[in-house]
């Protein structure tokens, strides 16, 4: 049993899940905005990165990790709301490439501003838990307290979001505003406010993700720290279907595990290539995602 737990394949699965939950979180925050506003937020990673900088750079280095994280989440909420009000609001109903272009421009601005203020150098965040793997009969299991912390945090975030959408009045209004804006406006839902709230929630999820990514000793916090994570998160969201939160979560974890095997058995350079290949194939077979019921496009 113990040799099974320390075997190469189990190590790959565990490591893959640890990476995969991060991709799931990015995918989830992309899905949150896509469902309500039909905008793919290319600045998602950069917005989260800024929130993390605010949480960990503005406060004194002695401030506790958890206080900084709370500040980062609040910053994430604010950044999300501001972005929706200032930039995104002018893009509703425009040709579908306009939001793409605007969000890419915003991404460039955010990354440059972050580099201008905090430099391009990597900033180590205090790691709240040990990153040394647990031992079993003097062999490492591919799971450290930090990895477990990542997984638990992701599960908590997903549960909170799911609970909010499924079991609260606010969640009902959010879903209504996303699915049938005209009808819900007639029924007294403040649709505009709900869209802003959706962006705020998505951005806060992003902030948690970026804190997790940046607390990892090996990556640290840089202005472009979220670029690669964003690419994998987008691939997960697109494979799962940008309309399906459950699909985003599952395909994020699946992607993480598969890529971990690819990196272990093939070559670390092949990881992103395999991910790209999976994206291309899945989009050719099911352009709307594996987990979405295919809908006829309305003319």
């Amino acid at each position: 049993m113990s040799s099974f737990l320390t075997s190469r394949n189990v190590a790959d699965v565990l490591g893959g899940i640890t990476n995969g939950v991060i991709y799931s979180l990015v995918a989830l925050s992309l899905v949150l905005v896509w469902r309500s506003t039909r905008i793919l937020n290319f600045a998602q990673g950069a917005m989260a990165m800024i929130a993390t900088y605010v949480g960990f750079a503005v406060l004194a280095p002695t401030t506790s990790y958890w206080v900084s994280m709370a500040v980062a989440i609040v910053a994430g909420l604010l950044i999300g709301g501001l972005t929706e009000r200032v930039i995104v609001r002018g893009l509703y109903g425009k040709p579908e490439i306009n939001p793409v272009v605007a969000m890419v421009g915003f991404l460039l601005v955010l990354e440059s501003v972050a580099a201008a203020i905090w430099s391009t150098g990597s900033r180590g965040l205090p790691t709240p838990f040990s990153m040394v793997d647990w031992q079993l009969n003097h062999k490492p299991v591919a799971l450290s307290p930090f990895a477990l912390y990542e997984i638990v945090t992701a599960v908590v975030v997903m549960t909170v979001i799911a609970g909010l959408f499924q079991f609260t009045k606010l969640g009902l209004r959010l879903r209504a505003a996303a699915l049938a804006p005209e009808v819900s406006r007639l029924l007294g839902v403040r649709v505009g406010r709900m869209l802003t709230l959706g962006w705020m929630l998505s951005s806060a999820v992003g902030a948690v993700t970026a804190v997790l990514v940046a607390s990892n000793y090996f990556t640290g916090l840089t202005p472009t720290a979220m670029d690669g994570v964003f690419a994998f998160g987008f691939i997960a969201a697109a494979i799962g279907g940008l309309d399906s939160p459950v699909g985003a979560l599952l395909s994020g974890i699946a992607l993480g595990v598969i890529l971990q095997f690819v990196g272990d058995y093939l070559n670390s350079n092949a990881i992103i290539l395999v991910a790209l290949g999976m994206l291309v194939v899945s989009l050719m077979v099911r352009p709307n995602g594996v987990f979405t019921r295919s809908a006829q496009r309305r003319v």
């Binding site: 290319f42 793409v100 690669g228 987008f234 697109a238 992103i272 790209l276 291309v280």
Partner: peptide, 26 residues
Amino acid sequence: GLPATRLRGPYLAGMTLAFAVAFGAV
């Protein structure tokens, strides 16, 4: 471009972004 035949706006943009990120690895 082959998958691009079935993709619209943001999906295609995201796929080309993934290609741009993957290019260094290639």
